[in-house]
Each structure stands twice: as structure tokens, then as C-alpha cells.
Nucleic acid binder design. Structure first.
Lengths: 105, 105
DNA sequence: CGACTTGGTAAGTGGTAGCTTACCGTTCGC
DNA sequence: GCGAACGGTAAGCTACCACTTACCAAGTCG
């Protein structure tokens, strides 16, 4: 299981998508996330754990609070992978069009 | 539920990730996918249905077979979204570094 | 020290996602 | 037309995942 697979699997949950999206705007403590979401604080903690384990989120202690934020490095990896898939799909798509073109004559 | 959310949720399953990855290399019939994967053909059909519903996969009838392939357009949407998240995270990350720099003096 | 804030962990539960087998529809070649 | 190849759908089962409540640990401030 590569990192990318784990990342995509982690992002399979809409709540985690929402959390990562919010954290991409800047650091946020757990409580504040829980206030903005329709789930309990422990649930948010569990989601953050998952996101952290796969490298999509960073955290640091700040007094009694713990600030989480999106990890640009992890996102870069995911982005690069998806880019590869997209490029290949585009290539395959273009190839097919070329073949059809060929067949018309 | 936007398309992007649905796409990410669909990609939450490793088997679907594998399927989309294979389809990015070119069109493939259902049976061939099932042969290459450790699940039954109906299971593959169900996954393809999900991927198609969210716009990540295209299909066309070809005689008795049905060819599936990755949809470059859908992938482009997903790519663009992830790009946005990444850019924001990078921005937020840079901002924080700048503040720390400031505080040192 | 002692109260309060903040958050991670444990245990338990309900819902659902993914799988299988069985069945049926469609297309092609003889 | 008939049989074979190919694939979608139905029904049912199991396992896991997201959630909740309850509890505990750590830091802060009076």
C-alpha cells in the first residue's frame, strides 16, 4: 500500500475531505473544527489521526491546544500522482482519436 | 454534494483506484479487468458503475463487449480541485513561515 | 495546589459498502 | 435459430467504518 493509495483512501470520507479543505486555509485547533462540523470532537480527533497517519496533515502543540494544518508536501505527492493518471488518460484518449481519424480514410 | 466530493469518495476504495489507474492506460473490457483483479466480474461491474456515475470513467459498446476508459475531463476537474487545495495549503504554510521570521527580530 | 480548558483514547453500536452467487439480457458466429 | 461469449442486476451476507459517550492526560491560570 503506497502512500498515495492510503491518501486517497483517507480522502474517501466526505468529512475528512471537508476537514482537509478547511485546514488548507490555515492552522486550526480541534475544537474549532468540531464546532464547524456536525460531528463530535472525538470524531474529529479520529479523522485527524487518519489524515495525519497518511501524511496529509501536520500538527503541533500550542499551549493546551493542538493546531492542525494541511501538509503541502503530502498534497504535492497526491497532486503529482493524479497528474500522472490524468496525463496518461489524455494520451490514451488522443491515441484513440488518431486511430479513428486514420480509419476514416 | 459536488462532483468533486463524489469523485473523491468513489476513489476511496483501493480497488476502484486500481481500476481507474488501469483504465488510464487505455480502454479495456470488463472481463479483462476482472481477470487482472482479485475480485469477481460482477464486483468489477459494480465498481465501474460507481466510477461512471461520478464522471471518472467513460464506456462504449463494442460488439458484445463494453469498453471502459478513464475520462480525461473528469480527471481534469479533480486535478484542478486538488491543485486549489494544494496552492492554498502552500500559501498558508508560507504565511506562517513569514510570521515566524518576523517574530525572530 | 486546584479548577478549567483542550484534546486524545477506549469501548460499544448501527449502518452500509463491497463481495459473492445466481439469474437474465444482448450480440455475434455457425 | 442456437449456442456461446460478454456483461449488467438482484439478493444476501459479512466486515468494517464512522459515530457516540465516558474517561483520562496535560497544560494554564487564579
Amino acid at each position: 500500500m503506497t502512500n498515495i493509495t492510503a491518501m486517497l483512501t483517507a480522502l474517501g470520507d466526505p468529512m475528512r475531505q471537508s476537514i482537509l479543505d478547511r485546514l488548507s486555509h490555515g492552522p486550526m485547533p480541534v475544537g474549532q473544527l468540531a464546532d464547524a462540523l456536525p460531528i463530535s470532537r472525538p470524531a474529529v480527533s479520529q479523522h485527524l489521526r487518519v489524515l495525519k497517519d497518511v501524511g496529509l496533515v501536520l500538527d503541533r502543540q500550542e499551549g493546551t491546544r493542538r493546531l492542525y494544518q494541511a501538509d503541502p508536501e503530502g498534497l504535492a505527492l497526491l497532486r503529482a500522482h493524479l497528474d500522472g493518471v490524468w496525463v496518461r488518460a489524455l494520451q490514451a484518449f488522443g491515441d484513440r482519436l488518431a486511430i479513428e481519424e486514420e480509419e476514416e480514410h
